[in-house]
Simulated scan of single mutants.
Amino acid sequence: MSAKKGVTYFLIAFVAFVFLQSLFFKFTGSEETDIIFSTIADWMKTVGLGFIAPAFAAYGGYVIGGTELVATGLMINPKTRSIGAFLGLAVISGAIFFHLFTPLGVNRVVDSQGNTDGGVLFYMACGVWVSCLLIFILNRKNN
C-alpha cells in the first residue's frame, strides 16, 4: 500500500468515526442535538431567517446527519471519494461557521444543567475539515 493510500484511509476513518458516531445523537433527537439546533434556530430569527428557523430546529439534525452519512459513503468508494470529501467539507464548513459566528460558540452547552463540552465538538469539526480537504486534494484526479 502506498503512503498516499494509507494517509487517505486514515483520514477517511477519522471522518467516518466523527460523522457516524454523531448519527445516534442526531437521529434520536438527543438533548445535545436539540440544544444545538434550537440555539442556531433562535439565532436565525435574529438575522432575518425566522421563516426557516422552526424547520431547522425540528429537522436540521436529520438533514445534517443524513448528509454526513452520504458523504461518508461516498468517501469510502474510490470512484466517488472526491465528491464525498467535497460534500463533507461543505457540511463541516457550515458547522464551523455556526460555532464561530452564532451564539452556539466553541465551548457549547450540552445539557439543561449548563454543562459544556470544553470545545471538543468544535475541535473535532476542525479536524474533519482538514481531513476532508486533504482527502479531496489527494483524490481529486480520481473523479
Rank of each mutant, 00 (worst) to 15 (best):
M1Y: 00
K5G: 02
T8Y: 04
Y9I: 09
Y9K: 01
F10A: 12
L11T: 09
L11I: 13
L11M: 09
I12S: 03
I12M: 05
F14G: 15
V15A: 09
A16R: 08
V18S: 05
L20I: 04
S22F: 06
L23F: 00
L23D: 00
L23W: 00
T28Y: 01
S30F: 04
E31I: 02
T33K: 04
I35G: 05
F37S: 03
S38W: 02
S38I: 01
S38D: 04
T39I: 06
I40A: 10
A41R: 11
A41K: 07
D42M: 08
D42W: 10
W43T: 05
W43P: 05
M44I: 07
K45H: 09
K45G: 11
T46Q: 08
V47N: 05
V47S: 06
G48N: 11
L49M: 14
I52P: 12
P54M: 08
P54L: 10
P54V: 06
P54F: 12
P54Y: 10
A55M: 15
A57E: 06
A58D: 04
A58M: 10
Y59A: 06
Y59Q: 14
G60Y: 15
G60H: 15
G61H: 13
G61Y: 12
G61N: 14
Y62F: 15
Y62K: 01
V63K: 02
G65F: 07
G65E: 09
G65V: 07
G65C: 07
T67W: 03
T67H: 03
T67S: 12
E68Y: 03
V70R: 13
V70A: 05
T72M: 06
M75I: 05
M75H: 08
I76Y: 02
I76R: 04
N77L: 11
P78I: 02
P78S: 07
R81V: 10
R81D: 02
S82N: 05
G84I: 03
G84F: 03
A85S: 01
A85V: 01
F86I: 09
L87K: 00
L87A: 03
L89C: 00
A90T: 05
I92R: 10
I92E: 03
G94C: 04
A95K: 04
I96W: 08
F98M: 06
F98P: 01
F98K: 03
H99N: 12
F101G: 12
F101K: 13
T102K: 07
T102S: 08
G105S: 08
G105R: 07
G105D: 10
G105P: 04
V106R: 10
V106D: 09
N107L: 14
R108E: 11
D111P: 08
Q113F: 12
G114T: 14
N115T: 09
T116C: 14
T116Y: 14
D117Q: 13
D117E: 12
G118L: 11
V120I: 12
L121A: 15
A125L: 11
C126W: 13
G127M: 12
G127K: 14
V128Q: 14
V128F: 13
V128W: 14
L133V: 14
L133D: 01
L134P: 00
I135R: 11
I135G: 02
L138M: 14
L138Y: 14
N139T: 15
R140I: 03
N142F: 06
N142L: 11
